[in-house]
Design a protein around this nucleic acid. Structure first.
Lengths: 246, 246
DNA sequence: ACAGGCGAAACTTTATACAATCTTCGCCCA
DNA sequence: TGGGCGAAGATTGTATAAAGTTTCGCCTGT
Protein backbone atom coordinates (compact mmCIF):
# COMPACT_ATOMS: atom_id res chain seq x y z
CA UNK A 1 0.00 0.00 0.00
CA UNK A 2 1.24 3.40 -0.91
CA UNK A 3 0.96 6.30 1.44
CA UNK A 4 0.35 9.77 0.10
CA UNK A 5 3.10 11.66 1.84
CA UNK A 6 6.27 9.92 0.82
CA UNK A 7 7.57 9.79 -2.71
CA UNK A 8 5.97 6.88 -4.48
CA UNK A 9 7.50 4.39 -6.85
CA UNK A 10 10.55 3.79 -4.71
CA UNK A 11 9.20 0.39 -3.97
CA UNK A 12 12.00 -1.69 -5.28
CA UNK A 13 14.98 0.48 -4.58
CA UNK A 14 16.38 -0.72 -7.85
CA UNK A 15 17.85 2.62 -8.68
CA UNK A 16 20.59 3.97 -6.46
CA UNK A 17 19.67 7.49 -7.48
CA UNK A 18 16.33 9.27 -7.62
CA UNK A 19 14.38 8.29 -10.69
CA UNK A 20 14.68 10.85 -13.42
CA UNK A 21 10.95 11.00 -13.83
CA UNK A 22 10.43 12.13 -10.28
CA UNK A 23 9.64 15.82 -9.96
CA UNK A 24 12.93 17.42 -9.02
CA UNK A 25 11.29 20.37 -7.44
CA UNK A 26 14.55 22.16 -6.94
CA UNK A 27 15.42 21.75 -10.58
CA UNK A 28 15.36 25.02 -12.42
CA UNK A 29 13.90 23.54 -15.57
CA UNK A 30 11.06 22.06 -13.53
CA UNK A 31 10.39 25.43 -11.94
CA UNK A 32 9.96 26.97 -15.36
CA UNK A 33 7.88 24.10 -16.65
CA UNK A 34 5.59 24.13 -13.66
CA UNK A 35 5.27 27.88 -13.73
CA UNK A 36 4.23 27.92 -17.36
CA UNK A 37 2.01 24.88 -16.88
CA UNK A 38 0.23 26.55 -14.00
CA UNK A 39 -0.25 29.68 -16.05
CA UNK A 40 -1.78 27.69 -18.87
CA UNK A 41 -3.91 25.50 -16.65
CA UNK A 42 -5.20 28.48 -14.73
CA UNK A 43 -6.10 30.17 -18.00
CA UNK A 44 -3.76 33.09 -17.50
CA UNK A 45 -2.06 32.18 -20.76
CA UNK A 46 -4.56 31.81 -23.57
CA UNK A 47 -4.29 29.38 -26.48
CA UNK A 48 -2.27 30.81 -29.32
CA UNK A 49 -0.16 32.99 -27.06
CA UNK A 50 3.43 33.09 -28.14
CA UNK A 51 5.94 31.93 -25.56
CA UNK A 52 9.15 33.72 -26.46
CA UNK A 53 12.29 32.20 -25.08
CA UNK A 54 13.87 35.49 -24.09
CA UNK A 55 10.68 36.65 -22.45
CA UNK A 56 10.29 33.58 -20.26
CA UNK A 57 13.98 33.40 -19.56
CA UNK A 58 14.00 36.91 -18.21
CA UNK A 59 11.02 36.20 -15.97
CA UNK A 60 12.66 33.19 -14.38
CA UNK A 61 16.19 34.52 -14.51
CA UNK A 62 17.34 31.63 -16.64
CA UNK A 63 19.10 31.29 -19.95
CA UNK A 64 17.25 30.29 -23.07
CA UNK A 65 18.81 26.85 -22.86
CA UNK A 66 16.74 25.99 -19.82
CA UNK A 67 13.63 27.67 -21.15
CA UNK A 68 13.93 25.68 -24.35
CA UNK A 69 14.19 22.43 -22.42
CA UNK A 70 11.07 23.28 -20.46
CA UNK A 71 9.14 24.22 -23.58
CA UNK A 72 10.11 20.99 -25.28
CA UNK A 73 8.75 19.05 -22.35
CA UNK A 74 5.51 20.98 -22.52
CA UNK A 75 5.31 20.31 -26.24
CA UNK A 76 5.61 16.61 -25.53
CA UNK A 77 2.75 16.95 -23.04
CA UNK A 78 0.65 18.50 -25.74
CA UNK A 79 -0.14 21.84 -24.19
CA UNK A 80 2.43 23.76 -26.24
CA UNK A 81 3.06 23.67 -29.96
CA UNK A 82 6.55 24.31 -31.24
CA UNK A 83 6.63 25.51 -34.83
CA UNK A 84 9.96 25.27 -36.52
CA UNK A 85 11.81 28.56 -36.73
CA UNK A 86 8.81 30.36 -35.30
CA UNK A 87 8.74 29.48 -31.67
CA UNK A 88 6.46 27.99 -29.05
CA UNK A 89 2.76 28.75 -28.65
CA UNK A 90 0.12 27.70 -26.20
CA UNK A 91 -1.71 24.85 -27.91
CA UNK A 92 -5.14 25.34 -29.44
CA UNK A 93 -6.83 21.94 -29.36
CA UNK A 94 -9.36 21.33 -32.13
CA UNK A 95 -12.77 19.84 -31.43
CA UNK A 96 -11.43 16.58 -32.81
CA UNK A 97 -8.56 16.72 -30.32
CA UNK A 98 -11.08 17.40 -27.58
CA UNK A 99 -13.14 14.35 -28.43
CA UNK A 100 -10.01 12.21 -28.43
CA UNK A 101 -8.92 13.51 -25.06
CA UNK A 102 -12.25 12.81 -23.44
CA UNK A 103 -12.54 9.42 -25.04
CA UNK A 104 -9.16 8.53 -23.62
CA UNK A 105 -10.15 9.81 -20.21
CA UNK A 106 -13.33 7.77 -20.27
CA UNK A 107 -11.23 4.74 -21.03
CA UNK A 108 -8.48 5.28 -18.48
CA UNK A 109 -10.00 7.00 -15.49
CA UNK A 110 -12.53 4.33 -14.53
CA UNK A 111 -9.65 1.89 -14.35
CA UNK A 112 -7.60 4.34 -12.34
CA UNK A 113 -10.31 4.87 -9.78
CA UNK A 114 -10.66 1.11 -9.64
CA UNK A 115 -7.05 0.85 -8.55
CA UNK A 116 -7.55 3.70 -6.14
CA UNK A 117 -10.24 1.68 -4.37
CA UNK A 118 -7.69 -1.01 -3.72
CA UNK A 119 -5.02 1.39 -2.54
CA UNK A 120 -7.29 3.25 -0.16
CA UNK A 121 -5.95 3.96 3.33
CA UNK A 122 -6.82 6.39 6.12
CA UNK A 123 -3.98 8.66 5.07
CA UNK A 124 -5.25 8.82 1.53
CA UNK A 125 -8.81 9.45 2.60
CA UNK A 126 -7.64 12.34 4.70
CA UNK A 127 -5.68 13.71 1.78
CA UNK A 128 -8.73 13.50 -0.45
CA UNK A 129 -11.00 15.12 2.09
CA UNK A 130 -8.51 17.89 2.54
CA UNK A 131 -8.52 18.41 -1.19
CA UNK A 132 -12.30 18.57 -1.33
CA UNK A 133 -12.17 21.25 1.34
CA UNK A 134 -9.71 23.26 -0.68
CA UNK A 135 -11.91 22.98 -3.71
CA UNK A 136 -14.94 24.18 -1.80
CA UNK A 137 -13.03 27.10 -0.36
CA UNK A 138 -11.78 28.20 -3.74
CA UNK A 139 -15.30 27.91 -5.08
CA UNK A 140 -16.70 29.95 -2.23
CA UNK A 141 -14.31 32.83 -2.63
CA UNK A 142 -14.91 32.76 -6.38
CA UNK A 143 -11.28 32.08 -7.20
CA UNK A 144 -11.78 30.75 -10.69
CA UNK A 145 -8.11 30.15 -11.31
CA UNK A 146 -7.64 28.07 -8.22
CA UNK A 147 -10.85 26.19 -9.00
CA UNK A 148 -9.67 25.21 -12.43
CA UNK A 149 -6.34 24.03 -11.11
CA UNK A 150 -7.80 22.16 -8.17
CA UNK A 151 -10.39 20.29 -10.19
CA UNK A 152 -7.57 18.97 -12.33
CA UNK A 153 -5.52 18.17 -9.28
CA UNK A 154 -8.34 16.03 -7.96
CA UNK A 155 -8.10 13.66 -10.86
CA UNK A 156 -4.34 13.63 -10.68
CA UNK A 157 -4.50 12.84 -7.00
CA UNK A 158 -6.56 9.74 -7.66
CA UNK A 159 -4.08 8.67 -10.30
CA UNK A 160 -1.25 9.07 -7.81
CA UNK A 161 -3.27 7.07 -5.36
CA UNK A 162 -3.61 4.23 -7.83
CA UNK A 163 0.14 3.78 -7.70
CA UNK A 164 0.19 3.14 -11.43
CA UNK A 165 2.93 5.38 -12.75
CA UNK A 166 2.09 4.92 -16.42
CA UNK A 167 -1.55 5.77 -15.99
CA UNK A 168 -0.44 8.74 -13.92
CA UNK A 169 1.79 9.99 -16.70
CA UNK A 170 -0.90 9.57 -19.30
CA UNK A 171 -3.50 11.24 -17.17
CA UNK A 172 -1.32 14.24 -16.40
CA UNK A 173 -1.14 14.86 -20.10
CA UNK A 174 -4.87 14.39 -20.58
CA UNK A 175 -5.73 16.71 -17.71
CA UNK A 176 -3.50 19.46 -19.02
CA UNK A 177 -5.09 19.24 -22.42
CA UNK A 178 -8.56 19.09 -20.88
CA UNK A 179 -7.98 22.37 -19.16
CA UNK A 180 -7.28 24.05 -22.47
CA UNK A 181 -10.26 22.36 -24.06
CA UNK A 182 -12.61 23.48 -21.34
CA UNK A 183 -11.36 27.02 -21.67
CA UNK A 184 -11.95 27.01 -25.41
CA UNK A 185 -15.20 25.17 -25.73
CA UNK A 186 -17.31 25.38 -22.62
CA UNK A 187 -20.86 26.60 -23.11
CA UNK A 188 -21.66 28.31 -19.85
CA UNK A 189 -19.67 29.62 -16.97
CA UNK A 190 -20.36 26.54 -14.98
CA UNK A 191 -17.49 25.40 -12.81
CA UNK A 192 -15.11 23.18 -14.68
CA UNK A 193 -15.67 20.21 -12.38
CA UNK A 194 -18.59 19.97 -10.03
CA UNK A 195 -17.23 19.48 -6.55
CA UNK A 196 -20.28 17.39 -5.75
CA UNK A 197 -19.19 14.73 -8.17
CA UNK A 198 -15.76 14.72 -6.66
CA UNK A 199 -17.22 14.20 -3.23
CA UNK A 200 -19.32 11.31 -4.46
CA UNK A 201 -16.28 9.71 -6.01
CA UNK A 202 -14.38 10.02 -2.76
CA UNK A 203 -17.27 8.41 -0.94
CA UNK A 204 -17.23 5.47 -3.31
CA UNK A 205 -13.50 5.10 -2.92
CA UNK A 206 -13.76 5.16 0.83
CA UNK A 207 -16.29 2.37 0.69
CA UNK A 208 -14.00 0.49 -1.66
CA UNK A 209 -17.01 0.23 -3.95
CA UNK A 210 -15.29 -0.19 -7.27
CA UNK A 211 -18.43 -0.41 -9.33
CA UNK A 212 -19.85 2.78 -7.89
CA UNK A 213 -16.52 4.55 -8.23
CA UNK A 214 -16.23 3.64 -11.90
CA UNK A 215 -19.79 4.70 -12.59
CA UNK A 216 -19.42 7.99 -10.77
CA UNK A 217 -16.19 8.76 -12.56
CA UNK A 218 -17.64 7.96 -15.93
CA UNK A 219 -20.73 10.07 -15.48
CA UNK A 220 -18.58 12.86 -14.12
CA UNK A 221 -16.48 12.85 -17.27
CA UNK A 222 -19.55 12.65 -19.44
CA UNK A 223 -20.99 15.64 -17.70
CA UNK A 224 -17.86 17.68 -18.25
CA UNK A 225 -17.82 16.86 -21.92
CA UNK A 226 -21.54 17.51 -22.22
CA UNK A 227 -20.93 21.07 -21.10
CA UNK A 228 -18.68 21.60 -24.09
CA UNK A 229 -19.69 22.81 -27.50
CA UNK A 230 -17.63 20.72 -29.88
CA UNK A 231 -18.98 21.65 -33.25
CA UNK A 232 -17.56 19.94 -36.24
CA UNK A 233 -15.81 22.74 -38.02
CA UNK A 234 -16.84 23.58 -41.55
CA UNK A 235 -13.13 23.54 -42.31
CA UNK A 236 -11.92 27.08 -42.87
CA UNK A 237 -14.99 28.55 -41.30
CA UNK A 238 -13.86 27.59 -37.83
CA UNK A 239 -10.35 28.57 -38.71
CA UNK A 240 -11.50 32.07 -39.39
CA UNK A 241 -13.50 32.23 -36.20
CA UNK A 242 -10.47 31.03 -34.28
CA UNK A 243 -8.16 33.59 -35.73
CA UNK A 244 -10.59 36.40 -35.13
CA UNK A 245 -11.22 35.13 -31.63
CA UNK A 246 -7.62 35.79 -30.73
CA UNK B 1 -11.77 7.69 -43.44
CA UNK B 2 -8.04 7.89 -43.24
CA UNK B 3 -5.84 6.39 -45.88
CA UNK B 4 -2.49 4.92 -44.95
CA UNK B 5 -0.25 6.59 -47.45
CA UNK B 6 -0.69 10.29 -46.80
CA UNK B 7 0.29 11.99 -43.58
CA UNK B 8 -2.58 11.59 -41.15
CA UNK B 9 -4.02 14.14 -38.78
CA UNK B 10 -4.10 16.88 -41.38
CA UNK B 11 -7.83 16.51 -41.41
CA UNK B 12 -8.76 19.97 -40.40
CA UNK B 13 -5.99 21.98 -41.95
CA UNK B 14 -6.15 24.11 -38.85
CA UNK B 15 -2.42 24.62 -38.74
CA UNK B 16 -0.73 26.41 -41.59
CA UNK B 17 2.48 24.57 -40.80
CA UNK B 18 3.15 20.89 -40.20
CA UNK B 19 2.14 19.90 -36.73
CA UNK B 20 5.09 19.73 -34.39
CA UNK B 21 4.17 16.23 -33.38
CA UNK B 22 4.47 14.96 -36.92
CA UNK B 23 7.69 13.08 -37.63
CA UNK B 24 9.93 15.64 -39.30
CA UNK B 25 12.11 13.04 -40.87
CA UNK B 26 14.54 15.60 -42.18
CA UNK B 27 15.05 17.03 -38.73
CA UNK B 28 18.46 16.23 -37.38
CA UNK B 29 17.21 15.72 -33.84
CA UNK B 30 14.66 13.24 -35.14
CA UNK B 31 17.32 11.36 -37.01
CA UNK B 32 19.29 10.92 -33.82
CA UNK B 33 16.23 10.01 -31.81
CA UNK B 34 15.05 7.48 -34.35
CA UNK B 35 18.49 6.02 -34.73
CA UNK B 36 18.90 5.45 -31.04
CA UNK B 37 15.32 4.25 -30.70
CA UNK B 38 15.84 1.69 -33.44
CA UNK B 39 19.03 0.50 -31.79
CA UNK B 40 17.23 0.03 -28.51
CA UNK B 41 14.15 -1.58 -30.02
CA UNK B 42 16.25 -3.97 -32.04
CA UNK B 43 18.18 -4.91 -28.93
CA UNK B 44 21.49 -3.68 -30.24
CA UNK B 45 21.73 -1.39 -27.24
CA UNK B 46 21.16 -3.27 -24.01
CA UNK B 47 19.49 -1.91 -20.86
CA UNK B 48 21.94 -0.12 -18.67
CA UNK B 49 24.18 0.93 -21.54
CA UNK B 50 25.52 4.40 -21.11
CA UNK B 51 24.67 6.82 -23.89
CA UNK B 52 27.44 9.41 -23.78
CA UNK B 53 26.61 12.71 -25.40
CA UNK B 54 29.96 13.13 -27.12
CA UNK B 55 29.89 9.54 -28.32
CA UNK B 56 26.50 9.83 -29.99
CA UNK B 57 27.25 13.29 -31.26
CA UNK B 58 30.32 12.04 -33.07
CA UNK B 59 28.40 9.19 -34.66
CA UNK B 60 25.75 11.46 -36.08
CA UNK B 61 28.01 14.39 -36.72
CA UNK B 62 26.01 16.64 -34.45
CA UNK B 63 26.80 18.85 -31.51
CA UNK B 64 25.89 17.88 -28.01
CA UNK B 65 23.00 20.32 -28.05
CA UNK B 66 21.10 18.19 -30.54
CA UNK B 67 22.05 14.92 -28.91
CA UNK B 68 20.86 16.21 -25.59
CA UNK B 69 17.51 17.19 -27.06
CA UNK B 70 17.07 13.75 -28.56
CA UNK B 71 17.98 12.02 -25.32
CA UNK B 72 15.52 14.15 -23.39
CA UNK B 73 12.76 13.10 -25.75
CA UNK B 74 13.69 9.47 -25.29
CA UNK B 75 13.68 9.93 -21.54
CA UNK B 76 10.16 11.26 -21.77
CA UNK B 77 9.19 8.17 -23.76
CA UNK B 78 10.54 6.04 -20.96
CA UNK B 79 13.19 4.08 -22.81
CA UNK B 80 16.10 6.14 -21.52
CA UNK B 81 16.88 7.24 -17.99
CA UNK B 82 18.73 10.48 -17.44
CA UNK B 83 20.54 10.65 -14.13
CA UNK B 84 21.63 14.06 -13.04
CA UNK B 85 25.31 14.75 -13.61
CA UNK B 86 25.81 11.17 -14.71
CA UNK B 87 24.30 10.92 -18.11
CA UNK B 88 21.75 8.94 -20.07
CA UNK B 89 21.33 5.17 -19.90
CA UNK B 90 19.13 2.71 -21.70
CA UNK B 91 16.24 2.10 -19.31
CA UNK B 92 16.03 -1.07 -17.26
CA UNK B 93 12.34 -1.62 -16.55
CA UNK B 94 11.56 -3.43 -13.33
CA UNK B 95 9.06 -6.29 -13.19
CA UNK B 96 6.63 -3.83 -11.64
CA UNK B 97 7.11 -1.52 -14.59
CA UNK B 98 6.52 -4.45 -16.90
CA UNK B 99 3.23 -5.33 -15.29
CA UNK B 100 2.10 -1.73 -15.55
CA UNK B 101 3.01 -1.55 -19.21
CA UNK B 102 1.10 -4.68 -20.09
CA UNK B 103 -1.86 -3.72 -18.02
CA UNK B 104 -2.01 -0.43 -19.89
CA UNK B 105 -1.72 -2.21 -23.21
CA UNK B 106 -4.52 -4.59 -22.30
CA UNK B 107 -6.64 -1.57 -21.53
CA UNK B 108 -5.85 0.50 -24.59
CA UNK B 109 -5.21 -1.85 -27.46
CA UNK B 110 -8.60 -3.54 -27.57
CA UNK B 111 -10.12 -0.10 -27.93
CA UNK B 112 -7.62 0.81 -30.60
CA UNK B 113 -8.34 -2.26 -32.67
CA UNK B 114 -11.99 -1.45 -32.24
CA UNK B 115 -11.43 1.89 -33.92
CA UNK B 116 -9.35 0.22 -36.57
CA UNK B 117 -12.33 -1.93 -37.51
CA UNK B 118 -14.27 1.23 -38.24
CA UNK B 119 -11.47 2.84 -40.21
CA UNK B 120 -10.82 -0.18 -42.37
CA UNK B 121 -10.40 0.39 -46.12
CA UNK B 122 -8.88 -1.54 -49.02
CA UNK B 123 -5.75 0.56 -48.83
CA UNK B 124 -5.29 -0.21 -45.15
CA UNK B 125 -5.92 -3.90 -45.65
CA UNK B 126 -3.24 -3.95 -48.28
CA UNK B 127 -0.86 -2.14 -45.99
CA UNK B 128 -1.50 -4.64 -43.22
CA UNK B 129 -1.08 -7.62 -45.52
CA UNK B 130 2.16 -6.19 -46.78
CA UNK B 131 3.33 -5.85 -43.22
CA UNK B 132 2.45 -9.44 -42.42
CA UNK B 133 4.52 -10.49 -45.41
CA UNK B 134 7.47 -8.51 -44.17
CA UNK B 135 7.15 -10.10 -40.76
CA UNK B 136 7.08 -13.59 -42.26
CA UNK B 137 10.10 -12.87 -44.40
CA UNK B 138 12.11 -11.57 -41.47
CA UNK B 139 11.09 -14.62 -39.49
CA UNK B 140 12.10 -16.96 -42.30
CA UNK B 141 15.55 -15.54 -42.73
CA UNK B 142 16.04 -15.56 -38.98
CA UNK B 143 16.54 -11.83 -38.75
CA UNK B 144 15.80 -11.43 -35.07
CA UNK B 145 16.39 -7.70 -35.04
CA UNK B 146 13.98 -7.02 -37.85
CA UNK B 147 11.45 -9.36 -36.27
CA UNK B 148 11.50 -7.50 -33.00
CA UNK B 149 11.07 -4.19 -34.71
CA UNK B 150 8.36 -5.38 -37.07
CA UNK B 151 6.25 -6.99 -34.37
CA UNK B 152 6.20 -3.65 -32.61
CA UNK B 153 5.44 -1.87 -35.85
CA UNK B 154 2.39 -4.04 -36.33
CA UNK B 155 0.76 -2.72 -33.22
CA UNK B 156 1.75 0.82 -34.07
CA UNK B 157 0.27 0.42 -37.52
CA UNK B 158 -3.09 -0.48 -36.09
CA UNK B 159 -2.92 2.53 -33.83
CA UNK B 160 -2.22 4.75 -36.81
CA UNK B 161 -5.11 3.13 -38.57
CA UNK B 162 -7.43 3.99 -35.71
CA UNK B 163 -6.84 7.65 -36.46
CA UNK B 164 -6.70 8.38 -32.75
CA UNK B 165 -3.58 10.45 -32.27
CA UNK B 166 -3.59 10.31 -28.49
CA UNK B 167 -3.89 6.56 -28.35
CA UNK B 168 -1.16 6.41 -30.96
CA UNK B 169 1.16 8.50 -28.84
CA UNK B 170 0.48 6.45 -25.74
CA UNK B 171 0.94 3.20 -27.58
CA UNK B 172 4.23 4.25 -29.13
CA UNK B 173 5.55 4.71 -25.65
CA UNK B 174 4.15 1.41 -24.44
CA UNK B 175 5.57 -0.48 -27.39
CA UNK B 176 9.01 0.94 -26.90
CA UNK B 177 8.99 -0.06 -23.27
CA UNK B 178 7.60 -3.47 -24.12
CA UNK B 179 10.53 -4.15 -26.35
CA UNK B 180 12.92 -3.58 -23.48
CA UNK B 181 10.79 -5.66 -21.16
CA UNK B 182 10.66 -8.58 -23.54
CA UNK B 183 14.40 -8.45 -23.93
CA UNK B 184 14.93 -8.51 -20.18
CA UNK B 185 12.34 -10.97 -19.03
CA UNK B 186 11.38 -13.46 -21.69
CA UNK B 187 11.63 -17.09 -20.75
CA UNK B 188 12.40 -18.80 -24.03
CA UNK B 189 13.66 -17.72 -27.37
CA UNK B 190 10.19 -17.68 -28.77
CA UNK B 191 9.54 -14.91 -31.25
CA UNK B 192 8.47 -11.73 -29.55
CA UNK B 193 5.08 -11.66 -31.26
CA UNK B 194 3.58 -14.64 -32.98
CA UNK B 195 2.86 -13.67 -36.55
CA UNK B 196 -0.09 -16.01 -36.49
CA UNK B 197 -1.84 -13.85 -33.97
CA UNK B 198 -1.18 -10.83 -36.06
CA UNK B 199 -2.71 -12.50 -39.08
CA UNK B 200 -5.79 -13.41 -37.08
CA UNK B 201 -6.16 -9.86 -35.91
CA UNK B 202 -5.94 -8.59 -39.46
CA UNK B 203 -8.59 -11.05 -40.49
CA UNK B 204 -10.92 -9.82 -37.79
CA UNK B 205 -10.29 -6.22 -38.80
CA UNK B 206 -10.99 -7.01 -42.42
CA UNK B 207 -14.32 -8.51 -41.43
CA UNK B 208 -15.00 -5.45 -39.30
CA UNK B 209 -15.68 -7.90 -36.52
CA UNK B 210 -14.98 -5.72 -33.51
CA UNK B 211 -15.71 -8.34 -30.93
CA UNK B 212 -13.35 -10.85 -32.50
CA UNK B 213 -10.69 -8.22 -33.00
CA UNK B 214 -10.79 -7.18 -29.36
CA UNK B 215 -10.65 -10.75 -28.19
CA UNK B 216 -7.78 -11.65 -30.48
CA UNK B 217 -5.81 -8.61 -29.43
CA UNK B 218 -6.36 -9.28 -25.77
CA UNK B 219 -5.32 -12.90 -25.93
CA UNK B 220 -2.34 -11.91 -28.03
CA UNK B 221 -1.18 -9.51 -25.34
CA UNK B 222 -1.84 -12.04 -22.64
CA UNK B 223 0.25 -14.56 -24.48
CA UNK B 224 3.16 -12.16 -24.80
CA UNK B 225 3.06 -11.41 -21.11
CA UNK B 226 2.69 -15.06 -20.24
CA UNK B 227 6.00 -15.72 -21.92
CA UNK B 228 7.69 -13.36 -19.51
CA UNK B 229 9.19 -14.23 -16.19
CA UNK B 230 8.24 -11.34 -13.97
CA UNK B 231 9.34 -12.48 -10.57
CA UNK B 232 8.92 -10.14 -7.70
CA UNK B 233 12.49 -9.30 -6.94
CA UNK B 234 13.85 -10.02 -3.51
CA UNK B 235 15.13 -6.47 -3.78
CA UNK B 236 18.86 -6.51 -4.26
CA UNK B 237 18.89 -10.16 -5.27
CA UNK B 238 17.46 -9.42 -8.69
CA UNK B 239 19.62 -6.35 -8.96
CA UNK B 240 22.68 -8.49 -8.60
CA UNK B 241 21.51 -10.94 -11.23
CA UNK B 242 20.81 -8.05 -13.55
CA UNK B 243 24.19 -6.49 -13.13
CA UNK B 244 25.99 -9.75 -13.68
CA UNK B 245 23.80 -10.45 -16.68
CA UNK B 246 25.07 -7.35 -18.39
C1' DA C 1 -2.63 54.20 -55.36
C1' DC C 2 -1.00 49.67 -55.18
C1' DA C 3 1.80 45.55 -56.04
C1' DG C 4 6.21 43.62 -55.58
C1' DG C 5 10.71 43.24 -53.83
C1' DC C 6 14.57 44.52 -51.06
C1' DG C 7 16.55 44.83 -46.42
C1' DA C 8 16.88 45.23 -41.57
C1' DA C 9 15.32 43.50 -37.14
C1' DA C 10 13.84 39.82 -34.20
C1' DC C 11 13.76 35.32 -33.24
C1' DT C 12 14.93 30.55 -33.36
C1' DT C 13 18.44 27.04 -34.23
C1' DT C 14 22.95 25.28 -33.68
C1' DA C 15 27.62 25.33 -32.04
C1' DT C 16 31.06 26.34 -28.78
C1' DA C 17 33.02 27.79 -24.45
C1' DC C 18 32.91 27.78 -19.53
C1' DA C 19 31.50 26.04 -14.91
C1' DA C 20 30.05 22.44 -11.84
C1' DT C 21 29.95 17.76 -10.65
C1' DC C 22 31.15 13.11 -10.54
C1' DT C 23 34.44 9.28 -11.24
C1' DT C 24 38.81 7.33 -11.06
C1' DC C 25 43.19 6.33 -9.63
C1' DG C 26 47.11 6.84 -6.86
C1' DC C 27 48.99 7.77 -2.47
C1' DC C 28 49.24 7.76 2.35
C1' DC C 29 48.26 6.05 6.79
C1' DA C 30 46.49 2.80 10.17
C1' DT D 1 47.11 -5.21 3.33
C1' DG D 2 42.86 -2.58 3.49
C1' DG D 3 40.57 1.72 3.67
C1' DG D 4 40.19 6.59 3.23
C1' DC D 5 41.64 11.01 1.43
C1' DG D 6 42.68 13.96 -2.55
C1' DA D 7 43.94 15.53 -7.00
C1' DA D 8 43.48 14.72 -12.02
C1' DG D 9 40.53 13.50 -15.72
C1' DA D 10 36.20 13.04 -17.81
C1' DT D 11 31.40 14.10 -18.33
C1' DT D 12 27.43 16.68 -17.77
C1' DG D 13 24.96 21.29 -16.86
C1' DT D 14 24.60 26.08 -18.19
C1' DA D 15 25.51 30.26 -20.64
C1' DT D 16 26.83 32.76 -24.51
C1' DA D 17 28.00 33.54 -29.18
C1' DA D 18 27.51 32.56 -34.18
C1' DA D 19 24.42 31.13 -38.06
C1' DG D 20 20.10 30.70 -40.35
C1' DT D 21 15.16 31.78 -40.98
C1' DT D 22 11.15 34.38 -40.78
C1' DT D 23 8.68 38.61 -40.51
C1' DC D 24 7.60 43.18 -41.25
C1' DG D 25 8.35 47.73 -42.83
C1' DC D 26 9.80 50.64 -46.42
C1' DC D 27 10.85 51.87 -50.83
C1' DT D 28 10.53 51.78 -55.66
C1' DG D 29 8.27 51.13 -60.07
C1' DT D 30 4.22 50.81 -62.66
Amino acid sequence: MIEPSNQNFELMAAKPRPKSDAPDVSDRVSRIREGVTAAILEHRLLPGTKLGEDEIGEIYGASRTLVRTALQQLAHEGIVNIEKNRGAFVARPTPADAREVFEARRLIEPTIVDHACEAVSPAWIERLQQHLTEEREAELRGDARASVRLSGDFHRLIAEMSGHSIYLGFLKELIARSSLIILLYRRHDTPACGTDHHAEIVTAIRKRDKQAARTQMLSHLNEIEAELFLKDPAADELRLADVLGV
